[in-house]
């Protein structure tokens, strides 16, 4: 079985993010890194193809920059990459992203498409579902465990109360949560080998994909500053106040 993993290059979250004036689009530096949440998908893909000897292809949309983030996925062991880079895609929203990814994924034969639940820079959290819809395959989301067996995939789908066990036929799209597997650290050899792996770069023209109707970011508001904490003085009944507080937050 061949697996396709959707990944994203994002600006290093340890650095301050800046938005372009007017459009409110994220300014992307030359050096971007692999979104940490994508490491789980890549690892999952690698583990799933190991028994059958299939391939793992990573697919990504966005400005290539130095390509460091893509190579990080290849260094982990993915076999090759498809990168869709097109200036006309600047500022595109979740639907456009899903259309573009679907067009790219559709160029390959695959049993499973894996994605993270959401990216660390955009947080829309809907791309995997849209992607499945456009590819016309089942979407199995929020997986904390994934097993593939003879043409079907079974996941543990995380819920508020615990998890659901969901099974579907292949091919399918699965979105995985952080912690579904422990991502490996690339080996030194893997990093050097990654330099020789193929990264196919495609434009919108190559794909024949269309941009979806525009999403506009109208305004950006600073997050509210954190307010001071509340002190509960213990006159013997502090536990009741704490219980009430926890109940109010629906923790208990």
């Amino acid at each position: 079985m061949n697996v396709i993993v959707c990944v994203k290059q994002i600006p290093d979250p340890a650095t301050p993010y800046r938005l372009e004036e007017g459009t409110n689009w994220l300014i992307r530096p030359e050096e971007q890194i692999l979104d940490d949440t994508d490491r789980y998908g890549v690892e999952m893909g690698l583990q799933l193809v190991e028994p059958s000897g299939g391939t793992v292809t990573v697919v990504s949309m966005g400005p290539a920059g130095s390509g460091q983030g893509i190579r990080q996925a290849l260094a982990m062991g993915a076999d090759d990459a498809i990168l869709i880079e097109d200036t006309s895609l600047r500022g595109s929203d979740a639907l456009t992203t899903a259309r573009v990814l679907a067009a790219a994924v559709g160029r390959r034969e695959f049993g499973l498409v894996i994605a993270g639940t959401e990216s660390t820079d955009g947080y829309s959290g809907v791309v995997p579902q849209m992607l499945a819809e456009i590819l016309d395959v089942p979407a199995l989301t929020y997986a904390t465990k994934v097993e593939v067996d003879e043409g079907s995939v079974t996941i543990h789908r995380q819920t508020v109360a615990g998890y659901d066990v969901v099974t579907s036929s292949l091919p399918a799209v699965v979105s995985v949560t952080a912690g579904v597997v422990e991502p490996r650290y690339p080996t030194f050899k893997g990093i050097m080998d990654a330099k020789k792996k193929s990264i196919e770069t495609l434009s919108m023209g190559d794909l024949g994909a269309e941009r979806a109707p525009e999403q506009l970011v109208l305004s950006i508001v600073d997050a509210a500053e954190r307010t001071a904490g509340r002190k509960i003085e213990d006159d013997g009944d502090a536990h009741e106040a704490i219980v009430a507080l926890l109940a109010e937050r629906k923790v208990i």
Partner: peptide
């Protein structure tokens, strides 16, 4: 010959992640 600034960054980026996390 394999070592240019890009490769160095790639290697050291991964090494750095390893040492800082592990």
């Amino acid at each position: 010959q394999d070592i240019d600034a890009d490769t160095a960054r790639q290697i050291l980026g991964e090494a750095g992640r390893f040492f800082s996390e592990v």
